[in-house]
Design a protein around this nucleic acid. Structure first.
Lengths: 211, 211
DNA sequence: ATTATCTATAGATCTATAGATAATGC
DNA sequence: ATTATCTATAGATCTATAGATAATGC
């Protein structure tokens, strides 16, 4: 079927020099996984194209068959971290039966779970200084939309509705800061069970918000 | 007097190729300031020794007269960010006349003010992935001591004293996470007045702590 | 024939050292 | 003589392209 999936059978093209058990991922996905690991642990600038390609199981030059370079990998990874949270946020915004307090709590919990969940600490990518570059405007746009969802949910709560505009902005920033700052906490102690931690963070977030 | 201060008069040694108005800083301090700016804005790995030296007003090779390389600059900058907070924390721990709640609030406020205060967002250095390297063990030691001060102050409050050990650890982590996460908030909106922001963060921190 | 990979490499860096130079100090 | 700086550069990368090669597909 798909040209991306790596079926068990023989594959077209020259075989890889470094034979390995089939990862089950497409070459592009192998590259993304390798980049995720290296970017989060060593940093973006410190990671060479050779390191990414070789961790993915191919030679440095072969990488260019799938991506235009490191930037494309980072841009792809960044957006893939926010998109699931944003989907969740949109659903919660549309749900007008559940109290806003509960929806905000749920958004916090899900977001922390997604940020701290996966194999690699992908949320850690946000912290890379390179991410501020114009090149990653797409990521910034979705992240801004997510932050705005936090703001809207907060404004819809009883406590949030009573706030002046500038005060609402400040609380949103603190709330969002806590959620993203949790990446640092998770980095310092990756062993802690994620789901209990996500709930505790959501509790703390509502306390910050003044609820 | 000191061999470091840059007096107004003539100076020993070959003049710099790129003449500039006297910064009033010693060459080493000029290098540190340049490194602070570049490391925080572009990232550590992405900053070349040439960029640092040239921003400091000297040629690339001249830098090695003062420091062994980039690593030394980063190590120095990192420690210089925690040390003032740590001094404050020690004083607050020793003060047994003021209620623990007030001391914890004050530590949060001061810490945020120091992190967000200076010209460059030095706190942003914590976020660099390279900082986890063994080379920066000195920084990690002082940072751990600071975190422990947060824990002790929290434990000394009425609300904190009632917590089980694991619960106390979790709250300490969340508290410390908020404070350090504030770096991200400040990065996204550097225009916000720092002192009001520091107070608001301290308020939020106590709310997280459950006080 | 088409494809995925490989090897080889040009060109562009970047770091850290060697040795020269232009000031002041004695 | 001492010092702070400079210029020049060797050696070590790292990226991205060119062109060869070893599979399957028809």
């Amino acid at each position: 079927m798909g040209t991306t999936g790596a079926q068990g059978g023989r594959r077209v093209g020259r075989p890889r020099a470094d034979q390995r058990p089939d990862s089950g991922l497409s070459p592009r996905a192998e590259l993304l996984a390798a980049a995720a690991e290296l970017f989060t642990t060593r940093g973006y600038a410190a990671t060479t194209t050779r390191a990414v390609a070789e961790l993915a199981g191919m030679r440095q030059a072969s990488m260019y068959h799938y991506v235009s370079g490191k930037e494309e990998l980072l841009a792809d990874l960044l957006e893939s971290t926010v998109t699931p949270s944003l989907t969740c946020a949109r659903e919660l915004l549309a749900d007008d039966l559940t109290p806003a307090e509960d929806r905000l709590w749920e958004l916090c919990r899900t977001d922390v779970e997604l940020l701290c969940g996966g194999t690699h600490n992908l949320g850690g990518l946000y912290l890379l200084p390179e991410v501020r570059a114009e090149r990653f405007a797409g990521f910034h746009a979705v992240r801004a939309e997510l932050k705005d969802a936090y703001r809207q949910l907060l404004a819809a709560t009883a406590a949030g509705g009573a706030l002046a505009k500038s005060e609402l902005e400040l609380r949103t920033d603190l709330l969002f800061g806590l959620i993203e700052g949790v990446i640092l906490v998770h980095r310092s102690d990756p062993e802690r069970p994620v789901s209990a931690f996500a709930e505790a963070t959501a509790d703390a977030a509502l306390r910050i918000a003044g609820i």
